[in-house]
């Protein structure tokens, strides 16, 4: 009897003012297309879920994203989450009503952890993803895990221990954690395995590994040794280096359970 879930492969699309970009270390973003078309492409290519990050700077232009979410929801029939700039329950409601399955909160939750419990209460834990941006630091009394939560694309250190934050977020009602290593992000040298397994082993909610995917082997590592439940991918598929099907075939050959028919 097969008793485990398929590991999810999740393309991540950064969206700025209604267009997708791919940021390398959050700098020098280059426009690479229309988010709705990319969503359709990945849906048909076998993605198990999609993640959209709205990196629109100006608050006034954020309604553009709501329209993107609505059009994506009419086009694809797999779960997708939306993050970026969500500051309160009202922002969450707008995104969910437009058709997203989940919302991801990151710096807003660091500044105001209550947003997690309020969101979970209003829409259910399954809707609330905690996005964590993490940097490796020296172990200290304050940061015993040696991993610190950072915000503003890694520019601000918060003094919060990543592992403690993950555990607290689960208690507050987060349904899932999207764990992004700022050190590994954009390098395509593999995920931060130690960080991922540390967090995954200490919470009872699914962990999506993010940052560092460059080759199918990296996904295999993070889904086995890293104990992640899902893996976020960006550049390795956005630029056509690999297809989702190739990645899944490789994972299947390594004994990682993936969804094979779509």
């Amino acid at each position: 009897m097969e008793t485990v879930l398929s590991k999810r492969i999740i393309p991540c699309l950064d969206v700025r003012e209604g267009k997708t970009t791919k940021g390398i270390k959050f700098k020098n973003n280059v426009d690479i297309g229309d988010p709705v078309e990319m969503a359709r492409f990945y849906y048909k290519a076998g993605a198990d879920e999609l993640v959209f990050y709205d990196i629109t700077a100006s608050y006034e232009k954020r309604d553009i994203m709501i329209d993107v979410v609505r059009r994506v929801a009419e086009t694809i029939f797999i779960p997708f989450s939306v993050g970026g700039g969500i500051r309160n329950v009202n922002d969450m409601r707008k995104v969910l009503l437009a058709g997203a399955e989940k919302i991801s909160v990151n710096s807003a939750a660091v500044k105001n952890p209550e947003i997690i419990s309020k969101g979970a209460e209003a829409f259910g834990s399954q809707c609330i993803v905690l996005g964590m941006d993490v940097k490796h630091v020296k172990k200290s009394e304050k940061i015993p895990s040696g991993y610190e939560i950072v915000i503003n694309g890694g520019r601000i250190y918060t003094g919060i221990d990543a592992m403690k934050w993950a555990i607290q977020a689960e208690k507050l009602g987060a349904g899932e954690i999207c764990l992004n290593s700022i050190d590994a992000d954009g390098m395509q040298n593999g995920y931060e395995l130690k960080l991922t397994s540390l967090v995954s082993e200490n919470v009872n909610i699914p962990v999506i590994a993010s940052g560092g995917a460059g080759r199918p082997e990296h996904l295999c590592d993070v889904l086995t040794k890293g104990k992640a439940d899902a893996a976020l991918i960006a550049s390795m598929v956005h630029y056509g280096t690999y297809t989702i099907s190739e990645i899944k075939s490789y994972l299947d050959s390594c004994g990682v359970k993936v969804r094979k028919t779509w």
């Binding site: 008793t3 485990v4 879930l5 398929s6 198990d48 899932e176 909610i205």
Partner: peptide
């Protein structure tokens, strides 16, 4: 637990056959 004795997370969330 799974067949290989790994703890399974709850809720059951994701793709299954």
């Amino acid at each position: 637990k799974s067949r290989d004795e790994n703890r399974l997370k709850i809720p059951h969330m994701g793709w299954n056959s």
